[in-house]
Design a protein around this nucleic acid. Sequence first.
DNA 1: GCCACGGTAGTACCGGGGTACTACCCCGCT
DNA 2: AGCGGGGTAGTACCCCGGTACTACCGTGGC
Lengths: 220, 220
Amino acid sequence: MTTVLIADDQPLQRLGFRMLLESQDDMTVLGEANNGAEATRMTAELQPDVVLMDVRMPGLDGIEATRRIIASGARTRVLILTTFDLDEYAYSGLRAGASGFLVKDAQPEDLLSGIRAVATGDAVVAPSLTRRLLDAYVHHLPTAASAAAQTPDPRLDSLTDREREILTVIGKGWTNTEIATRLHLAESTVKTHVGRVLAKTGSRDRIQAVILAYDTKLVK
Amino acid sequence: MTTVLIADDQPLQRLGFRMLLESQDDMTVLGEANNGAEATRMTAELQPDVVLMDVRMPGLDGIEATRRIIASGARTRVLILTTFDLDEYAYSGLRAGASGFLVKDAQPEDLLSGIRAVATGDAVVAPSLTRRLLDAYVHHLPTAASAAAQTPDPRLDSLTDREREILTVIGKGWTNTEIATRLHLAESTVKTHVGRVLAKTGSRDRIQAVILAYDTKLVK
DNA sequence: GCCACGGTAGTACCGGGGTACTACCCCGCT
DNA sequence: AGCGGGGTAGTACCCCGGTACTACCGTGGC
């Protein structure tokens, strides 16, 4: 169950969000705040999984409230919602520690899946903004070569690409049957791959392989 | 009407996408390509709005095909779809000029809204990757995730000291018999402890527990 | 043309992991 | 004294993980 706090200064807007969220059987609205100060206080008290945060609010605005919530060390994730997808709002909001930035005219399903994503630690950005973020930052992305060089661990050298993939999903905790179904393989094939990965990496079982995957930063 | 080309080497996967897309009255599948070379050729010929591009394909892979399509100057947008949200794939795909990067186990609605977004010139990135992109390039302030990691993880709250100790050595990869001998316990006792740890933390097996131990910084 | 290698797939077998109980002891609390 | 929680220990059972093979097919190198 995902618990949500709604922070918006417009009562009608809050009502809309509450109706949408309460219609989902995996979400609960813990409360509503009508300004940033109240949002900060209620978050500390109610410890929701996610705060739906409006940017424009009287007194303490959503950006500053986000900053304070994150600074408090709470495990609550902040998803910023605004009418305007202005870059200034987005950049400062994300820099403040928000896990996401969506525009209010998004489809309800997009909002819901966004809430679920940030609740599990992922992040979401409105497509219109993603475009601009990519344009601005794509040139700073590491190349495939440097990404490969990022794992110079000799323990992984002998693995083929496929085996490295297998090791990655082992590290994610997938079972053999899960790997088989999700990768469209027979379980026997998965076992063959896994066996080779274990042999090549000197791991006695998949648990050692999970640890190896973490040590080599293949996962997380 | 949004026109789409599906590029994937798995016929069954293509069929699934086609079924999903054709069920929408604002989308049409112009064709299917089963490798990168074919995708490049068919894009030039059919000029679709969007290419759903798989990464792993025999011969010319999805990344290189994306690079060639973008380089050709076509107005076609490329949305990369892959089973793995590996950073290497994503970075190189986005650098190649893709308008989006989604994982195949996403919800169908998310895929559809993603297609609509890139068709209109916006961009989409899978939430799991967005998290890492934000962490790496948008802000250098503590994130919600790292802030949460500083405080004791609530998932471990219900554990007793002994159980937390057990979880730690599970995270180190010790087997039940190793735990028993090194901690001077009977193996049955170890199994009891392990069982309780798994139940309390909601882990289906010790592998999930290992991952949890790493996530909560209980080990390393 | 042939061979090596990577990826896929199959069968058969065994042991450890995990579950579902029950049970006993020690300690602190009321 | 009675009670509850934490730690310890046992038995019985089933399933998944891992091993040890064998085998087929493409692709690329020689």
